[in-house]
Each structure stands twice: as structure tokens, then as C-alpha cells.
Design a protein around this nucleic acid. Structure first.
Lengths: 110, 110
DNA sequence: CCGCGGTATTACCATATGAGCATACAGTCC
DNA sequence: GGACTGTATGCTCATATGGTAATACCGCGG
């Protein structure tokens, strides 16, 4: 059967989620957290982002369910909430690869 | 083996791609084009977006490889370039479903 | 209790971008 | 060629948002 079209309101919500990932800094944070739980300070060191900036991005990521956090004394330890984020990035990268290949084919007509 | 971390420049490119999808209007366009090739005017009717606005969004979608276009006389017929866009949306929707379910579980403690 | 390190928040600026209008451009038919 | 339809492009405005500095908050150790 044909696909049911999406409601306008749902589209807005989905767009908002994509917007969270539409930011190099946030992708960097997610990539840095890929295999390890880290504190904010550790992230500051690892990413070279400002502390306030980082903290705000972490709030956004958390509010949208991309990272989970855990209070540990005076520290806050962040980790990615699920692997599907990376699946999204992988698909995007796949698109980039395909385009790059197509480009090469156009340029080098051998 | 552990995953290789992504280059900052690549992250910027990926973010730019996500940004294209971070817009309800563009998602609406893609959804409208899901199963059919359409002209700009048809899209204006189907989406209730302004013509100029629509045309600009189509340029963005095309520049980023999400739609392909075909000149047909004085018409320009647009179509989705690949199905992977919908895979991206499906993953996002899956996330939303999971959160909704978790919410219900929290609210209705039965 | 007080200072301190770790984190979150607020205020501010600069920038980016979506919407809409007007207009330019292109192809078709008379 | 001129009028008309279809599409793209500039321009302007309003808004949203990322970066940063200053500061508030919070838990811990002395």
C-alpha cells in the first residue's frame, strides 16, 4: 500500500530533531562521547569548546534525548543515549560517499 | 576495532546536510514528492507554500542532492533523488515513538 | 562555615536564514 | 514579436541561534 503522508505538526517535530544534529559542535560532542562517558570538563579538554557553550549544547542534546546524564558528586557524567544517532550520521556519510564517487566519474572521464 | 573519530571538517559537512532537513517546509516537500514527480506549481497547490519560498527550498534540496530535477518545456519537474531520506526520517520517528512510549510509562503508573 | 572546583544560567552580540514581495528570466502559443 | 504561464532570483524584514563573558549554583574538603 502507498505510504501515508505525514502530518504537518509531526514534520515540525522531526525538523526540530534534525536541527539538533545540524550543528558541528553537537556532532563533535556526540562523536567524542561515542565510546565513553565523560564529564563536562573532560569534554572541554577533548573538544576545545568553551565550557558555557558546551554546557548549553549538552542541555539541547539531553532535552532531545540524544545524551543521558548522571550526577556523580559535583560532576555530571554524560553519555550517548543510543546508537541510532550514529546510524543517522552513517546514512549521511553514505550519501556523501555516493556523491563523491559520482563527482569523480564526471571529472575523470577516462 | 574501535570507531575512528570524525574529522572536524567532515562534521561540518554532515551538519550542513542535517540542516537541510531541519526545516518543516522542506520535509513537507520531500514527503509530497514521496511517490510522484511534480512541477513547482503542483507543489504550490499541494503544499500551500508560496511559490518563491518553494522554489528557494527546492534549490537547497537540489544543491544537497535530496531532489533531482528535469526540465520539461517551461516546466521543471522535481522528484526525490533517493529513498535514504525517508530512512533518516523513519529513524527519527522511531526515536519519537520510543520516547512517547517511555512517557506513557512514566505518566500512567498502573 | 568558607573557599573552591565543576556545572548551569543569564545577558549580549553577531550572524544566518525563512517568509514574502516584487521582479527578472525562460519557454510556449498566437 | 508580444502576451502569458511557469520558475528563479534579489531585496528586506523578523526571528532564531551559536559563541562568549560574567555570574550564579552546588557539592565537597578543610
Amino acid at each position: 500500500m502507498p505510504h501515508a503522508h505525514l502530518d504537518a505538526q509531526l514534520l515540525t517535530i522531526i525538523a526540530a530533531r534534525f536541527k539538533v544534529l545540524a550543528e558541528p559542535a553537537r556532532l563533535l560532542i556526540l562523536d567524542t562521547l561515542r565510546d565513553a562517558e565523560m564529564t563536562v570538563t573532560e569534554l572541554v579538554d577533548a573538544t576545545a569548546l568553551g565550557q558555557a557553550n558546551l554546557s548549553k549544547h549538552l542541555q539541547v542534546l539531553h532535552a532531545n534525548g540524544f545524551v543521558k546524564r548522571r550526577k556523580d558528586g559535583q560532576f555530571t557524567r554524560y553519555a550517548v543515549a543510543g546508537r541510532d544517532v550514529f546510524r543517522l550520521c552513517d546514512i549521511m556519510c553514505g550519501r556523501l560517499d555516493a556523491e563523491a564517487a559520482a563527482h569523480r566519474k564526471l571529472v575523470r572521464v577516462r
